[in-house]
Structure formats: structure tokens, C-alpha cells
């Protein structure tokens, strides 16, 4: 009984509550976060397959499926395969998130990291609830499916961010350099993250029939231009720093692939309008478009976080203590 009590006391130590990271990194939690990120990509694929195959209402009940937790094999046919697989993978991701949140809470010294773990857990629970509402209230398909998509992408972004925060490269950043130039890389990357999230909402809105295609195409032009210009500026100013240059290059590559997939998916959907059922290549293209969209968000988010870590407005290093404050750059600068 003494050991857990000591652990709790340790967590209450002022230095730890202030978020002092020290020179140690949480490598096991880092790899667990990467594993959870990959599982979340799998969950996004499963969800995208449900929408692309028009399988969202194929299992009319929730949280049970045909009145059971594990459905009978003769029910696992046609579109039920997609919907039930989505529920199953979501359950696995939810359970893994619970372990992850507990692990972060116990092992992390940074208070805000422990809180992020709890937020991730709350997010995955809320996401399950929204998914349930989507099934139980089919008449509000778009109104519920769009928040479901947004929470899914946000959850993925949060897990990616936690993988970044637990990485050795995050804690191994040396003296920060000034974020010279106007606009600064930090600001551009932050705007790019917000723009990608908005674009994901517009895409989900189009996919679920809430909006037309025009807002999504307009958003695509803005986001593509924003990501490319952010990356070009980052590489031009900090090209020698792999910490920043790598996610910038990756984001550019992904957004170009994403734009190509978007055009292909659009024309595939046009061509499939008269088909009796969802068919290839429309299914694969729309699923790939969604997944590459999520990966684009992840790459831009990594660039944003790393730029806030490595660059500072006044050339100050964002130390481990001030890392707590990175959410409020203005306060950190003061």
C-alpha cells in the first residue's frame, strides 16, 4: 500500500506539477502514442469505408449490434461488415486510449501531459456517444456525422501531438532561435492547422450532404496555398534544421497528393452517380482522400508544435518549465 501512496505523493510534488520534464523522455509512452496514432488511422479508414459504402445505417441498433456485442457470423455480410468492423475497431481504440490515458497519468511528470491524456479519453468517449446518436437518430445524419468526423480528426491530432511531446527530439531541442521574418513560421503553422481543421469540416459536410462542393473546393485552394507557402518559408529560413524542415517537406508532399486525390475522388463520384451501388474506384479514392487529409493534418500539426518549441519571438528558449505556457505564446514571451 505504501508504494502507490508514494507515487501519488510524487505526482503532487510542486516541481513536477509545474511540468518540469528534466532530461528524461518517456520513450515507452512515446511508442505507445505512436501505436495509438496508427490504430487511429486504422479507425479512420474503417469509418471512411462505412461512409463510402453507404453502410452507416446497416446496423440499426446501438450500442449493441443486432442485440449482441459480438454478432453472429451469418450477420457479418454485405455492408454490415463495414459498420460492425468500424464499431469493433473503435472499441479497441477506446480501450487502448483508456490504457494510454492511465499510463500517461501515472508515468508523466508534466501535469499538462497528464491532462491531455484525460482529454483524449474524454474525446474517445464523446466520439462513441456521437457515433451512437448518428445510428439512433438517422434523420439527423448530416448534423451528427459532421461533428463525428471533426472529433475523429481532432482526436487523431491530439494523439499525434502527445507522441510529439513524448519524443526525444522534443526534449532534446537546444537553444531556440528567433522566429524572424514576417509572418513568422510559428504563426503561419498555427493558421495552417486551423485551416486544415476547417477544411476537414467542409469535406465532411460535403460527404454527408450538409454542404455543396463549392466550400470544400474553395477551402482546398486556400489550404494548399497556405501549407505550401508555410513549408517554403520554413525551409527557406530553417532548411538546415531537420526538426522543422522534415515536417514542412512532408506536409507539402501530402497536401499535393491530397489535392490530386480530391480531384480524382470528385470525378469518380460524378462517374458513379448512376451506379446501382457504391463501386470501385470511387470507394478507394474517397477513403484515401480522407486518410491523406488526416495525415496532412498530422504533419502540419507536428510542424506547428515543433516551430513553437524550437523558435521563439525574442530568441528565448522555450524551456521545459515554459513549455507549460506554449499554449499562450503571448504569456510565454512576457
Amino acid at each position: 500500500m505504501a508504494a502507490p501512496a508514494q507515487s501519488l505523493n510524487l505526482l503532487k510534488e510542486p516541481s513536477i506539477q509545474q511540468g518540469v520534464l528534466g532530461d528524461r523522455t518517456n520513450r515507452s509512452l512515446h511508442w505507445f502514442a505512436i501505436l495509438l496514432s496508427c490504430m487511429t488511422v486504422g479507425l479512420l479508414v474503417a469509418g471512411a469505408l462505412v461512409t463510402s459504402n453507404e453502410a452507416g445505417d446497416s446496423v440499426p441498433d446501438w450500442p449493441l449490434s443486432f442485440g449482441r456485442w459480438l454478432i453472429k457470423s451469418n450477420n457479418f455480410i454485405a455492408n454490415v461488415r463495414y459498420e460492425y468492423s468500424h464499431r469493433f475497431v473503435a472499441g479497441v481504440v477506446g480501450a487502448t486510449t483508456l490504457i494510454f490515458a492511465l499510463w500517461a497519468y501515472i508515468s508523466e511528470r508534466r501535469v499538462w501531459m497528464r491532462r491531455l491524456g484525460l482529454i483524449a479519453l474524454a474525446g474517445v468517449i464523446a466520439q462513441a456517444g456521437i457515433g451512437g446518436l448518428r445510428v439512433l437518430l438517422p434523420e439527423y445524419k448530416a448534423a451528427i456525422a459532421v461533428p463525428h468526423a471533426l472529433v475523429a480528426q481532432s482526436f487523431f491530432g491530439l494523439i499525434v501531438a502527445m507522441a510529439v511531446f513524448t519524443s526525444s527530439s522534443w526534449s532534446g531541442v537546444g537553444e531556440s532561435r528567433p522566429d524572424t521574418g514576417n509572418p513568422g513560421v510559428r504563426r503561419l503553422a498555427t493558421i495552417a492547422v486551423a485551416a486544415v481543421l476547417i477544411q476537414l469540416v467542409l469535406g465532411a459536410g460535403f460527404r454527408h450532404g450538409a454542404f455543396g462542393i463549392i466550400p470544400h473546393i474553395s477551402g482546398a485552394i486556400v489550404v494548399t496555398a497556405l501549407i505550401i507557402s508555410t513549408s517554403v518559408i520554413t525551409i527557406r529560413r530553417h532548411g538546415g534544421d531537420k526538426f522543422l524542415a522534415r515536417p514542412a517537406k512532408l506536409a507539402t508532399a501530402l497536401v499535393l497528393v491530397q489535392a490530386g486525390l480530391g480531384v480524382a475522388a470528385y470525378f469518380a463520384r460524378l462517374a458513379a452517380a448512376g451506379d446501382p451501388q457504391p463501386l470501385e474506384p470511387m470507394i478507394s479514392l474517397t477513403v484515401a482522400h480522407l486518410v491523406v487529409g488526416a495525415l496532412t493534418l498530422a504533419s502540419v500539426l507536428v510542424l506547428c508544435l515543433r516551430s513553437h518549441r524550437a523558435l521563439s519571438v525574442q530568441g528565448l528558449k522555450m524551456t521545459d518549465v515554459t513549455a507549460v505556457e506554449f499554449r499562450s505564446p503571448r504569456r510565454a514571451a512576457v
Binding site: 448530416a142 450532404g209 462542393i213 452517380a273 448512376g274
Partner: peptide, 14 residues
């Protein structure tokens, strides 16, 4: 009445 892509930004949310 053929199925077609909805081009305009019509809002169908309740």
C-alpha cells in the same frame, strides 16, 4: 431527376 452532385453550397442542417 437523375442523381447528380450538389454543386451549390446549400445548407441542409436543421
Amino acid at each position: 431527376g437523375a442523381p447528380s452532385m450538389q454543386i451549390g453550397p446549400t445548407l441542409l442542417l436543421p
